[in-house]
């Protein structure tokens, strides 16, 4: 199968994911992680509806494959995530209980209930809720790695909408000047809350990277194995001192931005669900998928029930 046309170095940044007709079969641990993230996100929407969550939650339904594909390529790395960061966190740590405890304010919360959905921290991972803010911070980590002889990467996850923020450009400029081991992963899902990318972005992400002479990869597939095979080398080069890298994933956000704020035509959203990685994989490998799906659904439900039975976190910590 020719994957070159799907993961390219100069492709346009528009258009829907162009998945292989038949996705490559996945290692069971990858399929489990994809479905673990899916069921955590579906579960959080249910918890929200049932009144167990305050504030809001931004789910990554449809985008789970991005961090799952990248995770083994990011060892070691310091990942700087954003508001839609549950999948990034879970792909790195698999810590369902810590995340659900965090968003429900229960004992065992990874940040003591202080941070909530958008502000998670563990060694090697940090998310925060202001768009673009994490890119210069990730550059600082990259500068630390470059000047301390570490071969670690600094990774910033952003969305298509984040390109509206000026500090993203400030950071890209400096990252190239300093040849910093910074990777900016763009999850371009075509919509920023309710605003289509076409109404918020002139030009393209590829051209933005080119303007700063920053290496760029475009990923239009949702096949974990294909993505890994294609991105291993450019990431290795950044690790070895070739300078920053922008990876644009053309992906789909299946759910609303946060809760009930999806203004898209239901027919359009239905189409996205039909071309979703999970739907494609279920069609290609129905037995394997059904079994893993059921396993993760039950696992997440059991962990959730256990966490909800815990006491609320106290106010002493932090």
């Amino acid at each position: 199968m020719d994957t070159r046309s799907r993961v390219s170095w100069s492709a346009e940044s528009t258009g829907p994911p162009d998945g292989p007709a038949v996705p490559l079969s996945l290692d069971p641990t990858d399929l489990d992680m994809l479905l673990l993230i899916r069921h955590v996100e579906l579960g959080l929407l249910k918890l929200f509806a049932a009144g167990h969550l305050g504030g809001t939650t931004h789910t990554c339904l449809g985008q789970e494959y991005v961090p799952v594909a990248l995770n083994p390529l990011l060892q070691p790395a310091f990942v700087f995530s954003n508001h839609r960061g549950h999948g990034h966190y879970l792909a790195q740590f698999g810590d369902v209980a810590g995340l659900i405890a965090e968003v429900t304010g229960r004992e065992g919360a990874v940040c003591g209930g202080r941070g909530g959905s958008q502000h998670l921290y563990r060694t090697g991972f940090c998310s925060t809720g202001v768009q673009g803010e994490n890119v210069p911070v990730a550059l600082g980590a990259a500068l630390h790695f470059r000047t301390s002889g570490s071969d670690s990467l600094a990774v910033a996850y952003i969305g298509d909408g984040t390109w509206g923020e000026g500090v993203v450009y400030e950071a890209l400029n400096m990252a190239r000047l300093w040849r910093a081991p910074l990777v900016v992963v763009v999850e371009n899902n075509g919509i920023a809350q309710t605003t289509p990318t076409s109404r918020a972005m002139a030009g393209s992400i590829a051209a933005r990277a080119a303007a700063f002479d920053v290496r760029y990869a475009h990923v239009a597939v949702n096949c974990v194995r294909t993505i890994r095979a294609e991105l291993a080398e450019p990431l290795r080069q950044t690790r070895a001192g070739a300078g920053p890298l922008v990876i644009e994933f053309r992906t789909d956000r299946l759910g609303p931005h946060s809760k009930g704020d999806d203004t898209r035509d239901p027919a359009v959203v239905r189409e996205l669900w039909e071309r979703d990685w999970a739907a494609g994989y279920a069609r290609a490998y129905p037995t394997e998928f059904a079994s893993a799906d059921e396993r993760q659904r039950e696992f997440v439900a059991a962990v959730t029930a256990e966490v909800l039975a815990r006491p609320l976190v106290g106010s002493a910590a932090g």
Partner: peptide
């Protein structure tokens, strides 16, 4: 922001 990343490390 860069200073923040250095401090976090």
């Amino acid at each position: 922001g860069v200073a923040a990343g250095l401090a976090l490390c």
